[in-house]
Amino acid sequence: MEGFRYLDHTGDLGIELFGRSREALFEHAGEAFTDIVTDPATVHASFEVEISVDGADVEQLLVEWLTELIYRFDAQGWLFRRYRIRSLDDHHLSGTVQGEPYDPDRHPIRTTVKGATYHQLEVTRTEDGWKARVIFDL
């Protein structure tokens, strides 16, 4: 499987991610975040932004990556449609994201996210790639 799916969680919201590579896994994490917040089909890839984050290991990197996207939306009003990870190792990630500023008339808000958590966080290797689980604090 490739992409993401929602997990049922009483208090908050969880996602399960699948990717053939770690890069794909992180790109799907970005796509899942956009899908949580709004309808991705309404977001135009009009602008490109460079993003890089650091972490002590791949799991922390995943939380930091999502924390960065939450911050860009909550503080700066950015919504992204396309995610491209250029380089990714155990401690560093850099990539480009494409999107546009949030427009209340065009972007329906589904849920707002307070933060990405480490609760039950997992990034694991599978037979055909990578799998992860993240719970968001809503």
Binding site: Q60, T67, D74, K114, G115, A116, T117
Partner: peptide, 14 residues
Amino acid sequence: GHQVCSDYISVMIK
């Protein structure tokens, strides 16, 4: 407050 939480979770893990 949410950002303070995210920031300090990194600090506290260390």
